[in-house]
């Protein structure tokens, strides 16, 4: 198995006709992912055609979900419209919404989070690479690729990967694949200060997934998501966890690319996160080059 999505999961793409959404829809279709419907308001009735597949486009998420039976959506709409798109997906009672969009105002996300309370939908992101459950085909094709990760770097297997950074996720996944070790599911939770799903939420899912045998957790400066996950792992996690924290050399008070990657008021330092990892017996990868090896030594 895997967490969050399987190769048969049907997906809606919100913003399918934009250039970014279109490009990654094509890549997902080529990977073998079940893209069941697209949504672009005003373009309902059109189709999105690629590689012999034809994806119907709808005006609303509710229509797309009803007609296609999809339970998951991925969002590629520009920042000013992204909060609206997320809430529309929540309103349609989807199980999972993955928001790729970078640059959504914090206030919009505060409202989104509040409006999601008591609803069934889980949000991953925003400002994230998405979710991949690798498939059994060549270059892991036949899996479920939601978002912008390169599919071919994956390999089906038993390691779970969770990270706030896209390229560091790819780095970890590629290190595993090059050593012949596959992944159950890889989740980018995103680099924003307000996001839908935390490290801890994903770690809990990996702990409960019988096909995940080990976990790589990648964090970075800012916030306390890594510390919260470490605290839980210390008491409850039975699987080996290896981790890396980016930003030991980042100056305080500066945002390092990601809106959430900032040490402010002495909080959110790499040192504090590494100390929390050590305290929870999480294997520390001293450099980003050793993420896979650190975990494999523990298994």
């Amino acid at each position: 198995m895997s967490i969050l999505v399987t190769p048969t999961t049907k997906i809606i793409v919100q913003g399918i006709t934009g250039s970014f959404g279109a490009k990654h829809t094509q890549l997902s279709l080529a990977y073998g992912t079940q893209i069941a419907a697209g949504v672009t308001p005003g373009k309902g009735g059109q189709t999105f055609d690629h590689a012999g597949k034809s994806v119907p486009v709808y005006d609303t998420v509710a229509q797309a979900a009803k007609e296609s039976g999809a339970t998951v959506s991925v969002i590629f709409v520009p920042p000013p419209f992204a909060a609206d798109a997320i809430i529309e997906a929540v309103d349609a009672d989807l199980n999972l919404v993955v928001c790729i969009t970078e640059g959504i105002p914090v206030r919009d996300m505060v409202k989104v989070k509040r409006s999601m309370q008591g609803r069934k939908t889980r949000l991953i992101g925003p400002n994230c690479p998405g979710v991949v459950t690798p498939g059994e085909g060549k270059d892991s094709s036949g899996g479920c690729r939601i978002g912008i990760s390169p599919g071919y770097i994956h390999k089906k297997g038993n390691i779970g990967v969770v990270s706030r950074s896209g390229t560091l996720t790819y780095e970890a996944v590629w290190q595993l694949t090059c050593r012949g070790v596959g992944q159950s599911t890889c989740v980018g939770i995103g680099g924003d200060p307000v996001n839908g799903t935390s490290h801890l939420d994903i770690i809990k899912l990996f702990e409960d997934d019988p096909d995940t045998h080990g976990i790589i957790m990648i964090g970075e400066i800012g916030g306390t998501s890594e510390e919260e996950a470490a605290e839980w792992i210390k008491r409850n996690c039975h699987k080996p966890v290896a981790g890396f924290i980016a930003g030991s050399t980042a100056p305080a008070g500066r945002r390092m690319g990601h809106a959430g990657a900032i040490v402010s008021g002495g909080r959110g330092t790499a040192a504090a996160k590494i100390a929390a990892f050590k305290d929870a017996d999480i294997g520390i990868s001293a450099t980003p080059s050793e993420m896979a090896d650190t975990l494999l030594k523990m298994m």
């Binding site: 706030r164 950074s165 560091l168 930003g247 980042a250 990657a261 980003p288």
Partner: peptide, 13 residues
Amino acid sequence: GAGLAMATMDIIK
């Protein structure tokens, strides 16, 4: 990538 850029600074150090 922002995460990789931070990690590159870290590995240089």
